[in-house]
Amino acid sequence: MNSRTEHAPIIQMKNIEKHFGAVIALAGVSIDVYPGECHCLLGDNGAGKSTFIKTMSGVHKPTKGEIVFDGTPMNFDAPRDAMEAGIATVHQHLAMIPLMSVSRNFFMGNEPVKKRFGIPFLDKDKADTVTMQEMRKMGINLRGPDQAVGTLSGGERQTVAISRAVYFGAKVLILDEPTSALGVRQTSNVLATIDKVRKQGVAVVFITHNVRHALAVGDRFTVLNRGQTLGTAQRGQITPDELQDMMAGGQELATLDDALGGTV
C-alpha cells in the first residue's frame, strides 16, 4: 500500500470540533483519505462517527477545524454543496424507492433527457442500458431494468446505491454502516462492491462498528472514542483484538470478554 503515499489526499479533515450546546460531540478529530483507499471509521455507539461524517458531507458545520478537499479549503453550507464537489453519502436509510424500477431509481434526480420536437423527454433507452451495464459490473444480474427495487435484497440495494453514487462522479464515497442490517452473504457482496469501487480510484470512507467487516476491506483504520480519535493504523499493523479494545475504551470490554468466554 505504498503507492498511496504518492498521491495527495483527496480530503483532509483537520482538528474538527463540533459542539451541540454544552455537548462536545467531536473534540478535535483529524483524518485524511486518499483516492483508491478504503478508510474505515470505527467506533461504538455515541463515539461521534455519525456527527463526523455529517460534518464531512455538509450536513453539520464544524465548530472549529478545517476541511480541505482536493487541496482547497472547503466551507460546505449544505449537503448539496458537498454532493456537487464529489462527496456522496450512502445512508443507512437508502435513497431507494421500492415501487420504482431499478433504472428509474438509478437516475432519480439526475434523469438523462433527449430532446424531441424541442421537448426534453426522458431518455429511457440510455437509462436502461447504463443501469444494466453498471449493475453487471457490480455482479448483479437484473431480470431487466424495469425490475422494481422492492424485489432486490438489502445487499443488492446497497450495491445499487453505491454504484449510482460512483456513476455520478463521486470522488469520496461515505458509507454509513452499510452492513449493519445484512446477512452474511449479503455483507460479503457489499464488501466486494467496496473493493471494486476502491479499485476504480474512489476514496471510500466505511463506517462500521464491526471489526471483522472493517478488516476484510480496510486499508487504514481510524477509531473514534468519545469524540476523539485514538489514531489511525495501517492494515497489518493492528490486530482485531487491538481494534476491538480501542473501540470500547479497553477495560470494560476485557471484563465482559471474560464473562462471555471470548465471544464478543
Binding site: H93, M96, I97, P98, L99, M108, G109, E111, L122
Partner: peptide, 27 residues
C-alpha cells in the same frame, strides 16, 4: 407523457414513493 416520458414524471413517482429518499437524491 408527463408521467412516463419526462424527468418531471420520474419526480412525481419519487415524491409519492418515498419523499425522504427522493429528497436525498436531489428531487
Amino acid at each position: 407523457l408527463l408521467l412516463t416520458r419526462t424527468r418531471f414524471g420520474n419526480w412525481i413517482f419519487a415524491a409519492g414513493g418515498d419523499a425522504e429518499a427522493a429528497r436525498n437524491s436531489g428531487v
